[in-house]
Design a protein around this nucleic acid. Structure first.
Length: 764
DNA sequence: CCGGTATGTCTTTTT
DNA sequence: GACATACCGG
């Protein structure tokens, strides 16, 4: 562990009321206002409190005016929360903090002011991920590259990767060109960028890249912002990518009052370009930086904290923290092995009902999964039980087909040059303007270097289109023109309604016999409702570009269901962590792509999961699971083995983790368990598991102090030998091809080769 | 031009 | 198993 080097708190004597109740470290973090500060804040250590108080302190002591503070977060939600909490501390002067927001929204603000310096107009549109892929695809098509091999999606990902690293096409290392389309990667990147300029558009990565270019080429502009931002604060610093890091470093050069807050153990966005390196390197980047560690945890019980700490200790390259708590001992972390995914959902459902019957609110409980496909089993189970639940993160509102279509209409009305919008809705609903007509328009547009709307007008004058197509296109163009006039003196919500109605778009869904149609109509109503909160169409479209969700409805009385990623920053009294199986968690795909770095990131994800829990943390794994419609056998996650056994209690039928009686404690904690609480031992699911395994006694076990971590995986010896024919409940008959501890590799007659635990097969 | 079937894909996700 | 895209036949 690196030695902590707390900075000298300036103004130590300050005794403003907002400082009350802070612990020493938090207080130091608030009062060390000048110079670079790295605040290493472990999970549940009151980070947000320290950070908002710090901002309040800067304002209160008039070290800075609200508009001189740059405060960046990653999500809109985090920005909103920060604003609200500062407001409770300093009141309305928070309104002056116009530089409080996400990286992207602040970069967009700056770019709008200087757009012409990179060849854009300040009215540029911001493209979302879907548009990016579409555009990338067009670029590939135009370059005559095999679209089967090199997809738009792939190109968009490569370009995104470069942008995350702050690389404009000219700066991409030559040897990286070969990663895509036989060396054409950079050329395609260039083509993509010039297409963006023609469209007067910027994607999310561009917002930052353009900022960097502007700052580097225009020292006067950079100096202006450097002067302005006398204090800077960055939340979730461990999630910054290189581009964001460069941006921050440029802006901080003058005053050097930059405070970065983060936790290297919670860096879980590496796959999106985040560099943990940024936080590990902070003291080198900013010599003389004060490093303040927040290590007192106010959230979880000692067992939960102990389990999490033990788990994360397997990672190398950590700055190192020792979390501690004064809270009372609570229950140990529970690990439960079950037969299959259905049973897992059933048992968790039962647990939730039993907690509920003890008076716990549903909104105090959360199910956190590795990947969203795991959610379905729980949704189904909750539905049959009649339990209210709420999915966080699911399909995003503005990414839904109908909403994107509606937005395309509005965007086209606002900027007729928006070819992407034109493409999207010119034939939606069907107007008889299919591929052929579109090809004509594209040809004209490309030949003359004009937008598709303008090309349409020319096509109408020519005879290149059939009469029917021409009539239809004329009608469409006239409509768009008329709506653009209407837009000038109509409330945006009224306009949206009028347009969708007159375009026949509402009608299209009303006539649709798709089972999803009613839901889509509801979404359109919601969208119009959302528009009505804005006074101008521009205001609305600008807002939408940087926000993917509607304002969240509160989750009172509903179980939370979300991915581990979505859970970062949240906390719940009871947390369920299902699906702790090899290949799912850690995710095989992730490991295949990024090896050990990915494994460490998966482990951090596990750490994030466990540390969300305040009182009760319940991990589970299933021996069999249906993935993509196929049954797969699964081994318990290595992360389960890494949990320190003193903090863990295993509830499972004996066979599941393959231990013989001797490798377990003979001391059973069964007698200590409140039967009402753990009624699942008598419920149908449990009985089924018992019958299915058709083996021995089922008792919960406590692990005693022999050995340091759990050994649920491959301990014990199997009684089976290579070559033995066996029978498995789900996979049928097969022959053993290898034995490793109690893991068997079996070649099943009908299900192929699988790894199974020996207690799940019997000699045939 | 449209609507049907075949084929391929399937983390994590904010902006 | 579900969904999206792609291609083919009417």
């Amino acid at each position: 562990m690196a030695a902590a080097k707390p900075g000298t708190p300036q103004n130590q004597g300050d005794s403003a009321p907002y400082l009350e109740g802070l612990n020493d470290e938090q207080r130091t973090a608030v009062l060390t206002t000048d110079g670079p500060v790295l605040m290493l804040a472990g999970a549940g250590t009151g980070k947000t409190r320290a950070l908002t108080t710090r901002l309040a302190h800067l304002l209160h002591t008039e070290r800075a005016q609200p508009y001189q503070i740059l405060a960046v977060t990653f999500t809109n939600k985090a920005a909103r929360e920060m604003k609200e909490r500062i407001q409770t501390l300093v009141g309305d002067s928070v309104e002056g903090m116009k530089w409080l927001g996400t990286f992207h929204s602040i970069a967009a603000q700056i770019l709008r002011r200087h757009a012409e310096l990179v060849g854009l107009k300040s009215s540029f549109t911001i493209l979302d991920a879907d548009d990016q892929v579409r555009l990338a695809k067009q670029v590939i098509e135009a370059a005559n590259i095999d679209e089967k091999r090199w997809t738009g999606r792939g190109l968009a990902a490569v370009i995104d990767g470069w942008k995350n690293r702050g690389l404009v096409p000219e700066k991409v290392p030559a040897d990286e060109a070969y990663h895509f389309a036989d060396g054409k990667g950079i050329q395609l990147y260039k083509a993509y960028q010039s297409r963006m300029i023609t469209l007067n558009a910027a994607d999310f990565g561009d917002l930052l890249i353009h900022n960097l270019v502007i700052f580097q080429n225009n020292p006067d502009v950079l100096a202006e912002y450097q002067r302005r931002f006398s204090y800077m604060l960055v939340d979730e610093y461990q999630d910054t990518n290189v581009a964001q890091y460069l941006w921050l470093r440029l802006l901080a050069q003058r005053h050097k009052n930059i405070c970065c807050v983060g936790d290297d153990d919670q860096s879980i966005y590496g796959w999106r370009g985040a560099e943990v390196e940024n936080i590990l390197r902070f003291e080198k980047d900013f010599p003389g930086a004060a490093v303040i560690r927040l290590e007192r945890n106010y959230r979880s019980t000692p067992a939960i904290l102990g389990a999490a700490s033990g788990l994360i200790a397997s990672n190398k390259d950590r700055l190192g923290k020792t979390l501690w708590t004064e809270s009372e001992d609570g229950e140990k972390v529970r690990v439960r092995g079950v037969w299959d995914g259905d049973e897992e959902a059933r048992l968790i459902g039962d647990d939730i009902e039993s907690e509920q019957s003890k008076g716990r609110s549903l909104s105090d409980m959360a199910v956190l999964v590795r990947a969203s496909f795991q959610m379905r089993a729980f949704e189904e189970r909750f539905n049959t039980l009649g339990l209210a639940y709420r999915v966080v993160g699911g399909p995003r509102f503005y990414e839904r087909e109908e909403n994107r279509d509606a937005l395309a209409y509005l965007r086209l009305i606002r900027s007729p040059d928006n070819d992407l919008a034109f493409d999207r809705i010119v034939n939606k609903p069907k107007r008889g303007l299919g591929n052929k007509a579109l090809q004509v328009l594209h040809k004209i547009a490309r030949a003359q270097g004009i937008p598709l709307m303008a090309a349409s007008r020319i096509a109408l004058e020519s005879s290149e289109l059939h009469a029917a197509a021409r009539r239809s296109l004329l009608n469409f163009v006239d409509n768009v023109d008329r709506w653009a006039r209407d837009a000038k003196d109509m409330a945006p919500a009224d306009l949206a309604e009028l347009v969708l109605e007159e375009a026949g778009y509402i009608e299209m869904w009303k006539n649709s016999k798709s089972p999803q149609a009613p839901g889509k109509l509801d979404n359109l109503k919601e969208l119009i409702q959302a528009v009505s909160e804005f006074e101008t169409l521009e205001g609305y479209l600008d807002h939408v570009a940087l926000v993917s969700e509607l304002n969240e409805n509160t989750g009172d009385g509903q179980i939370w269901l979300m991915t581990l990623h979505a859970a970062k920053g949240l906390e719940f009294p009871v947390v369920f962590l299902p699906g702790w199986e090899e290949e799912i968690f850690p995710s095989k795909r992730s490991l295949d792509e990024n090896g050990n770095a990915a494994l460490e990131e998966e482990r951090r994800l596990a750490y994030v999961g466990v540390t969300r829990a305040e009182e009760s943390c319940r991990i589970s794994f299933a021996a069999n699971r249906q993935i993509y419609g196929r049954w797969q056998s699964a081994m318990p996650s290595r992360f389960i083995d890494e949990l320190p056994e003193e903090h863990v209690e295993v509830f499972s039928e004996q066979g599941l983790y393959g231990n013989t009686a001797t490798s377990f404690s003979s001391q059973s904690s069964f007698d200590n368990i409140d039967i009402k609480e753990d009624a699942y031992y008598e419920n149908p699911g449990w009985k089924r598991a018992r019958n299915a395994s058709s083996r021995g006694s089922i008792k919960p076990k406590t692990i005693d102090g022999r050995g340091k971590t759990l050994s649920i995986g491959a301990t014990g010896k199997s009684k089976f030998k290579i070559g033995t024919r066996v029978f498995h409940q789900k996979f049928g008959y097969g022959k053993i091809s290898s034995v490793e501890g109690q893991k068997l590799t079996v070649n099943f007659d009908h299900s192929g080769i699988k790894k199974v635990i020996d207690t799940f097969v019997e000699a045939a």
